[in-house]
């Protein structure tokens, strides 16, 4: 059963389509990597999946996924330099979409936020001010926030942009673990070919003329599992 299905999807601005007539489907538990040149429409596609942009044509069908069950790590967050917010406040705001008519977060949500912070090894920074952290730490905080909201799907737009190699590897490991252990469906934009062929179960390659979608023959973990056997 496809979790997300793009049917005949065209996206773009008033004066022309960037993406035209795209078709693909993502099943539950898959890891989709979107790669391609700058300006080929990767971020536009992400925005459409998140419901921030309306298609010019066609549709995106989400099967049994509420918007509040999506987690999202934006490419860049334009947080004002002087914004007062503690790490904890930022992370728990990942649940805001799921609040519905409630005004406060539940105990379970508080516990999950703490666990997300723990998992990203940011516990000692919980009460620190978000704006005083380094770029890599901020990115981890935002991933923790994304995890909070993500019940079924985690959407990441270039999660490792601006990170050093060690932080990059950590980031990928965490995302991979979320996919394998928690069964989260991952949709990630990345320039990194290593990931595309390493972790992803599906790769969507976007160019100016069109797109191609393929399944890497073997993912890294399948190789590892085979070796382990």
């Amino acid at each position: 059963m496809a979790l997300i299905e793009c049917k005949n999807l065209s996206l773009g601005y008033e004066n022309g389509a960037i993406i035209s007539r795209m078709n693909f489907r993502v099943n539950a538990g898959e890891y989709l990597c979107i790669e391609g040149e700058n300006g080929a429409g990767k971020s536009t596609l992400i925005k459409a999946i998140l419901g921030l942009k309306r298609p010019l044509e066609g549709e995106i069908i989400m099967d049994g996924v509420l918007q509040s069950e999506l987690g999202y790590l934006p490419q860049q967050t334009h947080v004002q330099r002087d914004f007062p917010a503690s790490v904890y406040e930022v992370v728990i705001s990942g649940f805001a979409g799921g609040l519905g008519g409630r005004c406060f977060y539940s105990k379970a949500e508080h516990a999950m936020a703490k666990r997300a912070i723990e998992r990203l090894e940011m516990t000692e920074y919980t009460k620190r001010c978000y704006r005083e952290l380094s770029g890599g730490q901020q990115q981890r905080v935002l991933l923790a926030r994304a995890i909070c909201g993500a019940k079924k799907i985690l959407v990441l737009d270039e999660p490792v942009a601006g990170l050093d190699p060690v932080a990059t590897k950590n980031m990928y490991d965490i995302i991979n673990e979320l996919n394998r252990k928690e069964g989260l469906t991952i949709i990630m934009v990345s320039h990194d070919v290593e990931v595309a062929t390493g972790y992803a179960t599906q790769v969507l390659k976007m160019t100016f003329d069109g797109y191609s979608i393929f399944r890497p023959r073997q993912t890294k973990q399948q190789k590892a599992e085979r070796r382990g056997e």
Partner: peptide
């Protein structure tokens, strides 16, 4: 804090 994130998550 982050309007586009808020909108994307419902």
């Amino acid at each position: 804090f982050d309007e586009s994130f808020a909108e994307a998550t419902g």
